[in-house]
Every structure is written in C-alpha cells, then in structure tokens.
Design a protein around this nucleic acid. Structure first.
Length: 988
RNA sequence: GCCCCGAUGACGGAACAGGUAGACGUAACGGACUUAAAAUCCGUUGUUGCGAAAGCGACGUGCCGGUUCAAGUCCGGCUCGGGGCACCA
C-alpha cells in the first residue's frame, strides 16, 4: 500500500477487516452494559444518496462511540421491504416485486457498507421475506384473539392512485401521504382495524415518560390523540321514540342551546325528517357527499345546513328546539351531533346568524364584587396609571417608542386619555390585581354621555369583557341620569366603524344581538376560554363554568339523560390494504362468511409466486384451499396488512433475529430493549412512532414484553437539501427533484470519511443542512492534513508504547510539550461532552479536532518552511497527542483513523480500543485571563495568577495603564469583581 | 385562527449557569513555493471614525423597550421565516 492517501483502497480494506473480525457483532453473553442503537430501517427504493447518508452517519457515530466507551452495542440494520413502488416496478418491468426488491436490497446493503457503518448484519431483518412476515402474522393472530383486531363497515379513506384504503394517519391535508396531490375519497367498506383507541389514554399519559423525546414530536402525538373531557346529553325527539345524543365540552352552556345539528351522515337523519323537508334534506345530503374533506373543512366557507322539520326537547329546560343537519358537524367525531349554543361557540354563532336561529347568552364573563372590581383611574393614582398603560401597550406597539419608558413619560399617554372630559375606569381581577380591561366615558352635556375608549387585555379577548364593561357603563350612566349615545343603525355604524378602527380601538367579540356591541367588529371567540358565571340557567345561576359542568352533568346523570364522557380524536387503525405486496392477513372465511383464523402451525401464509396482475382477490388458486384441520373448503382473506405493521415490531425482532420458533424470545428481548437511542426522520413523528408504541403496549398486555415504551431516546435529524434546477430553489434532496449526489460516485472519488465528516460538520444534527461538494472537499483537506502529519512521523510514533491520556506525567516537559498535552486533555474533554447523549453536538466535536490538528501543525512546523525535528519529551508529547486524536476521530471517520492507527504502530483494532479519558487536574490552570470591562464593555484583558481576592484584583486593575487613562477623564463609581474572570468598572 | 421552533459576518455555524460576540469551516483577498496552474503553507477578512504607522475610539447578534454593574443569552411588545394542527363541539 502506498504512502498516498487513497480513500478507495483504505476504506474497502477496513470494511472487510471489520467484517472478517466480527467487530460489529452484538454478543449475547457479554458482561458489558448493553446499548441498543437503532436507526429507522429504509425502504429499499434503489440507490442511496447523500440525503440518506446523514442519518446513518449520525447513528454510526453514536454506535461506535458507545462501543469504545465499553458498551456491548446492538446496532442492527434491515429493510422495510413491502410497499407500493415494488408493485409499480413489477407491473412496468414484468418481474415479481420480490425480485425487484431483493435487487435493490443488495445494492443498498453494499452502499450502506461503503459508508463505513458498523451494523451487525447477522441480524438483518427483511420484512418481505416469509421468515419475517410469518411472525407479523403470528402477532396479528395474537392481537385477534385478544380482541385488538376487528372488522367493521365504516367510511374509510380511499386513495384512487394507490387503489387501496389508508389509515387516518396516512391522510395529509385530505390527500394521500404517498401522492400528495391525490385527494382521498370516502368509501363505505368493510375493513380490518386495530383497536389502538383502547390504548389512547396510556399512549397519551406515557408521553410524560419520554423526557428524551423532543417536545415537537410529543406535541404532535398529543394533538393527534386529541383528548377532550366533556359530557353526553340525550335529547328526546318530540312525538317520537328516538333520542339524539350530543357530545359537548361546554355543558355549562346547555341552557343556551337553541337548536341541534346532526352530521349529514348521521343514522337518525332519515327517521327525523318531516315530509315537507324530505326533498331539501336529501338534496343537501347529496351535495354534502360531493364535497371533499378539504372543501368541507375550508373555513372561509359559510356554514350551511337544512332543518329536518322535527323538534327535540332540551332535557334541562323542557324547551322545544329545532333539529337541523349541517356539514360543519363531523359524523366521525363524538356522537355525530351537537347542540347549538350560538352565544358561546363561534361556529354555532355563524350558523345561527345564517339561518336566523335564536341566540341566548347564558354566561356572564365575570361578576363584580366577589372576584372583580371596577374603579376609576385618577391622575394621581400611579398604580392604576401603570396598569392602564399596560393595557394600552398591548394595543399600540408604538406607544413606547413614542413616549419612552420613564415613569414620568409613561403616564403621559394615559393622562392624555383621561384628561379633559373623559373619565377612565379599569376592571381588575382582585386575586392578582390583573387588569382585564378599561373604558372611557365622556360627558357631552349634562344629559348625554358617550363611550370613548374601550380596551380589553390581550389575554382576555373573546370572553365578553368588552360587552360587560359597556353594559356596566351604560347602567351606571343611566343611574346618574345620562342618556347614552349609541350607533345602532347602518348609517351611523359604518362611519363609526371606520373611525374606531383608525383610532385603534380593539375589536370586541360578542355573539349576541346587543346593539351596543355591534358597534364593534366581530372577533373570533375561543369557546373554551369563554367561561364565566352562569345566568339564565335556572338553579345553576351564579355557578362558575367549571363547577357548573360537574353539577349540570351530575344532575342529568341522576335523572338519566346525561353522563361524563371523554373523547379522543384518535381513531382505530385501519390496517387492511387492497394490495399484493404486503403481509397477507392470516384469516379465512367459510362459505357462510364466518371467520376462521389460520392456525399457528400453518404460518406463514405466503404470497403466491405466480400472480401476474398482482391482484390477490382474483388469484383463485391461492384464495381457495381446504383446511387441513377440519377439511372445510375455505377462502382466504385477500387484503394484506398496512406496511406499518412490519415496522411496528422490527426493533424487537433485531434482538432475536434468528429465532425460528417465535417472533422473539421475551427474555432475549428483555436484555436489549428498550432501544437506548433511536435516530430517524421527523416525518414519522405520528405514523410509525405511534404505532410502535401501541404495539409494545399491546404485546406487554399479551405477556410478551415487560416494558412500556420502546424508544428511550429519540433523535430526529434534519434533512439534507441541495439546489434543484427543476424547482429553481434549494429543496430536499430527492431523485424526483433531480438534486441528488449519489453515494457510489462521491465515495469513490473523495471517500466515505469525507462525506461523513461533512454531513456531521455542516450543522447541528437536528437542523436542516445544505449539501455542498465544496464543503465535503474541505473535509477531505482535513483528512489529508492528518494523513501527512502521521505519515511524516510514522515510524517514530510507535503508538502501542504510548500511555493513555490520564496517566501521563508532564513534569520536566518543555513549555511547548506541556501545552500540547494540556490541549489534548482539553480536546478529549470537549469531544466527550459534545458526544454526550443530552447534547449530540457532533459538529462542534469535529471543530475541536480541527483545532487540535491546527495546533499539531504549529507544534511540528509541518508544512511551513522549517519543519522542526522533535526529540525526547517533545516527541513523546506528539505521539501521545496523536494516539488520543485517533481515538477521538474513530467514531467520525472510521477508515482513516483505523489506517493511521495501524501505520503508527497502534495495537489491535482501533475500534476495539477503549475510549480515552482526560485528567481534570490537567485542565486546572494556575494562570487566568482577567477581563477588564468599563460599563460592561471590554476594555482589555491581562494574564494573572489564579485565586486572587477581590480587593487584590481590583487593585491590579486600577493600576492598569488603560484604566488609569480612562479614570483621568471620569470618576469611578463602583467596581464589580468576579474572581478569576473579570472586573467591571462603573464609570460616570 | 391556534400551538411549537427559529432569526448572530459574504455563507454554514460557535458562545452548553447573564460575564472577552463571531470558535471551527467554507468563500474571498494578499503573500510564499512554482516557468505556470493546481495542490500546499503563512497571513488578512463584522461595520465604521481618527492616524503615515504603532495605535486610539464608536457601533454591532431581526426591530422597539425593560431588568442588570453587565444581555446573543432573562422579561414585555412587534416583524419576518420554518414546522405542526385546524369546523374535534
């Protein structure tokens, strides 16, 4: 082998050496602590490119680091090999999907190896092989026995492009997750579901256990599960047997319910339609059915609906209210019907406005006396002025720039507002003195007064505070004998609106017909925050919303028409797919349609090898068979499973991949699981990660596992982008955008080590990075510099005879050598802490190594004209620095570091060494740099003995020439001394 | 609309407990070597004022304020960008 750095040669050499030595194998009987490092296994789509490389590089650094740190690391790899692209390719090219898939796997496996990854290939899992999907079927049957799998007729999402149904999680913005421009259709079909909702509560609660998952992913799961706590109420239908059950989180507003709305697909719609309304109703349903989910959910659309012509009885009031249908009510959530409370729900308000339905206010935002008070703002009341200012500030961003922030100036705008004829009042919450709003009244004459200013605190918008204040002011004005001027016709309203909006008046939300309130713009109401005190609600009047919710539900519970109810947005997981290339569902049907599970002994149910049109439902030879147990003629289920089933348990199989009697041995799994570090893309935040969590919980309840959560720590890496000619902008690297850099080409020319270093150095692991071939060449430069350095001293390094870092004694070393040793300690310390799991700051770890290399060039004089010849301790320090350097670099650039280790006389495999340790004592300095600041800004710094007292330091600084110069022109007011760090002089 | 995240030189980024802003790398420029180029090595590079120079100063982390001896970092408000959710009753 030559003395030139030849990545191609070196990388191939080490890849095969590692493989031959079984260096990456995870051993079962190891005494070391275990570490399970997992990266999301890829779909074998064909070639890998640099966009893929990043995630594998990150995960590989973590795995290799842990091995060096003395862990028994399980770092497996496999292929998520079922899926649609294989079918498309098969139909195009006339080959079996299995052939296409296996070809891709072969290519991708070799590319993964070329990256220098350290997988234990003996545990490879390929989900489309019977040896794997056999056990998916086995688990399916267990779930089936446990009642976690069921078949039901339901409206489902159908992707016309995929020609199959999809799970809710696979629908994004109303379109298919695979075909983002194909609108998903609704179809009524009988399909297989997994009862993930049985675990909704636990999936939600256990998010708290995942303290090492990013809040982003957890929030996404939280929203997806979408828990809401409320009540169900039964409304009897007038003159009929049926009752309509509604779900609500605002039962405290039930006295304000003025109608009911059912979803168009609600089963009671037909029965409740009066003969006069039949035509209108059926037309409405037909039209609603034509709308896609996207149109239906568009917010700009008006709320529409049709009266059914029948009436329901509000069980709390006995009131007779009309029943409507409307497509703003979803059939798939809650009971598919709601009570309309226009005064306290924005959507109901719009609907009621549209159709002239009654609006009745039953919630008062607050009550004066108990918790709230109103008081007049006087010019000498500083506290009130300050609070008023605070409210104004939330409206007018320019207030501060206009008036400044001094206490004196602060009052100016407020004083302006309350000056003259205006009188100003503020509304406070007593408990914490929080200001909710304020109102100004101007007396126009001795008989007429006008509202001039009205502001509601930002936090309280949409809660009726503005209306409350105006009602209060109006009542008060009347008491004192004033008549209030109001704008209640269009003629006066329009100019008033224009004027008031110009003045910056806030838009008050109010969903009632109070004409005073109509003065202002309508603003959205957040129904959940619009809580307060009940009025017009009979015996519940005066209760606070929270309390009222309990009391009203309890009261209905006693009388048998209401109950507490918790709802989830999460639906059961639809797992049937009308596709060929997936795991066959191991069930069969008798002639009468009853279901027969295939017995465990007869698994796997394999896919037919000969099925040219790839339609299982038409593969007659395959479909029909005679049950070997009963002798009955049976017909197989022709649906296959969602491929997300495969990835819901593959990480368990890795622990016991060769088991041919069970999916896995619980005891073996217990040794390796849970996964210590999972690395993968954010796109699986809901789909895969939610399903896998569900599987683990279900398998635990089947007695197969004894832990609750599969992935201890999750790292969502950022994507790799590159300029795309096609799109005319920087976009995610992908074949379809034509902006890919292939693994093979790049690695051949520059080496995997350069590519890895670039991937890791370009930015924090969770950030998006832009691929730059220039940048990757920069990493090659680093590698070549290191190569030249080590090769220069090759034979003199004899690394096997050099101590590890913590046992070197620098007594008697030259200053230069000592400094190098100290820098090495510092580098080890920095790289180690950057690699810590709570940081994973891989790019700064690499920067630290760059620094060390730069220092080594300085130290050796290499490259510059006069190369220094090193002897004795000076040479020892170099040998020592290089030895530790190579260990630090080993996880990042495995090939070059291994090669140089060998060439420099290191013993054994570099990657079988133990990680180096630093000596904290070596980082202790006896001299520190003291910074001199003047009014917080740096003036100068000087080296100084460590441990000086504050007075000593201050004296030193005051003697400093620059300080003296400064003090000639100004006087010292104060000096802040932070020992061993800085002295800040406050100068006036 | 709601929730989350972010904004630092020409660029990617660093500053991990408020304490020297710009580590490290790219790119650019100057120099050395070379017939030349590439490669390599050395140096410069936030803006700006005064100065021939050494040097001395001012400003500077999206914008406006606040707290503090001291703010990229903490607090309030705003702007812009990215992501998620979105008629969920």
């Amino acid at each position: 082998m030559s003395n030139q750095y030849n990545p191609l040669e070196i990388e191939a050499k080490w890849q095969s050496r590692w493989e031959d030595a079984g260096l990456n194998r995870a051993r079962e009987n190891s005494q070391k602590p275990k570490f399970y490092s997992l990266v999301m296994f890829p779909y074998p789509s064909g070639d890998l490119h640099m966009g893929h490389m990043r995630v594998y590089a990150i995960s590989d650094v973590i795995s290799r680091f842990r091995r060096l740190k003395g862990y028994e690391v399980l770092n497996p790899m496999g292929f998520d090999a079922f899926g649609l692209p294989a079918e498309n390719a098969a139909l195009e090219k006339g080959i079996h999907p299995a052939v296409w898939t296996e070809q891709n796997i072969t290519r991708m496996r070799s590319q993964l190896k070329k990256m220098g990854t350290s997988y234990d290939w003996e545990r490879e899992v390929i989900s489309c092989r019977p040896e794997y999907y056999r056990w998916s079927q086995w688990l399916f049957l267990k779930f089936y026995e446990k009642g976690l799998v069921y078949k039901k007729e339901a409206p489902v999402n159908w992707c016309p492009e995929c020609e199959t149904v999809l799970a809710n999680e696979q629908v994004e913005d109303g379109c298919c997750w695979r075909h983002t421009k194909t609108t998903v259709e609704k179809k009524m079909l009988s399909q297989w579901f997994m009862r993930i909702t049985a675990y909704a509560e636990e999936l939600l609660d256990d998010l708290d256990k995942l303290s090492n998952w990013s809040p982003q992913v957890k929030t996404m799961q939280l929203n997806w599960i979408g828990k809401s706590v409320g009540s169900e109420i039964d409304f009897m239908v007038e003159g009929r047997e049926q009752k309509i059950t509604v779900y609500t989180t605002r039962i405290d507003t039930v006295f304000g319910a003025t109608y009911l709305v059912l979803a168009p697909e609600h089963p009671l719609v037909k029965g409740l339609t009066s003969p006069e309304q039949e035509k209108a109703v059926s037309e409405y349903i037909v039209n609603a059915g034509k709308l896609s989910d996207i149109d239906r959910q568009s917010e700009v659309r008006l709320k529409t609906g049709v009266s059914l012509g029948s009436f329901a009885i509000n069980p709390y009031t006995g009131e007779r209210i009309p029943v409507w249908i409307g497509d703003y009510v979803l059939g798939s959530y809650g009971t598919g019907s709601v009570m309309g409370v226009p005064a306290h729900d924005e959507r109901d308000f719009k609907f009621a406005k549209q159709y002239g339905l009654a609006i009745r206010n039953v919630i008062l935002p607050l009550r004066l006396g108990d918790d709230f008070e109103i008081s007049e703002v006087k010019a000498d009341d500083e506290i009130a002025l300050g609070q008023t200012f605070e409210i104004l500030q939330s409206y007018f961003a320019n207030l501060i720039s206009e008036f400044g922030s001094d206490a004196e100036k602060k009052d100016k705008p407020v004083l302006e507002y309350i000056s003259g004829e205006d009188r100003f009042w503020i509304l406070r919450q007593k408990a914490d003195n929080k200001v909710l709003g304020c109102i100004g009244i101007k007396e126009l004459s001795s008989e007429i007064a006008e509202f001039t200013r009205l502001f509601v605190h930002k936090d309280c918008r949409g809660q009726g505070i503005g209306t409350f204040l105006m009602n209060w002011a109006e009542a008060r004005a009347r008491e004192t004998g004033y008549q209030i001027v109001r704008f209640d016709s269009d003629d006066t309203l329009k100019p008033a609106l224009a004027l008031y909006s110009k003045l910056g008046y806030y838009q008050i939300s109010c969903y009632n017909d109070n004409p005073t309130a109509n003065l202002y713009f309508e603003k959205k109401l957040n129904a959940n925050t619009a809580c307060g005190y009940l009025e017009g609600s009979g015996e519940f009047d005066g209760l606070k919303s929270d309390q009222a919710k309990d009391r009203i539900t309890q009261s209905g519970e006693v009388r048998g028409f209401a109950r507490f109810k918790t709802q989830y947005r999460l639906r059961d997981w639809l797992i049937s797919r009308q596709r060929f290339w997936g795991t066959p569902i191991p069930l069969a049907y008798r002639v009468d349609g009853s279901i027969v599970p295939i017995s465990y002994d007869h698994l796997p149910v394999t896919l037919p090898e000969d099925c040219p049109n790839l339609k299982l439902a038409q593969a007659e030879d395959w479909l029909h068979f005679v049950d070997p147990v009963s002798g009955e003629r049976l017909r197989r289920e022709s649906d296959t499973m969602d491929t997300f089933i495969c990835s819901s348990w593959y990480f368990l199989r890795f622990a016991d991949a060769l088991n041919n009697s069970h999916p896995f041995d619980p005891e073996v799994v217990q040794k390796w699981l849970p996964v210590d570090q999972y690395v993968g893309g954010i796109e699986h935040a809901i789909l895969h990660l939610l399903y896998a969590r569900f599987f683990v919980k279900a398998l635990r309840d089947l007695g197969l596992l004894s832990f609750d959560e599969p992935f201890q720590r999750l790292l969502s890496q950022g994507m790799v982008t590159m300029y795309s000619e096609k799109e005319g902008k920087v976009a995610k690297m992908s074949k379809s955008r034509g902006n890919v850099v292939g693994i093979d080409d790049f690695v051949e020319e520059y080496g995997a080590d350069s590519a890895r270093l670039f991937m890791l150095f370009a930015g924090p692991v969770t950030d998006e990075i832009e691929w730059s071939t220039e940048g990757a060449k920069g990493q090659l430069r680093f590698i070549q510099r290191l190569w030249r350095l080590v090769m220069e001293y090759e034979s003199r390094l004899a690394l096997s005879t050099v101590a590890l870092l913590d046992s070197i004694n620098v007594t008697g070393f030259t200053k230069k050598a000592k400094e190098l040793v100290i820098l090495t300690h510092r580098t080890v310390q920095a790289v180690e802490s950057d690699l810590a799991e709570e940081r994973y700051s891989l790019h700064t770890a690499i920067a630290r190594m760059f620094e060390l290399l730069n220092a080594l060039y300085q130290y050796t004089g290499l490259g510059s004209q006069e190369a220094v010849s090193l002897e004795g301790d000076d040479l020892l320090a170099l040998r020592f620095a290089i030895k530790n350097f190579l260990i630090l670099l080993a996880p990042f650039a495995p090939h070059i570091s291994a090669e140089l280790w060998e060439r420099a006389g290191g013993e054994g495999f570099l990657h079988a060494q133990s990680w180096t340790t630093f000596d904290p004592a070596m980082l202790e300095k006896d001299e520190v740099e003291i910074v001199i600041q003047v009014n917080g800004k740096r003036l100068d710094s000087f080296p100084c003995k460590k441990g000086l007292t504050q007075t000593e330091l201050e004296a030193l600084v005051l003697n400093h020439i620059k300080v003296k110069n400064r003090l000639e022109k100004a006087t010292l007011k104060k000096a802040i001394v932070v020992p061993d760090r800085l002295v800040n002089l406050v100068i006036g």
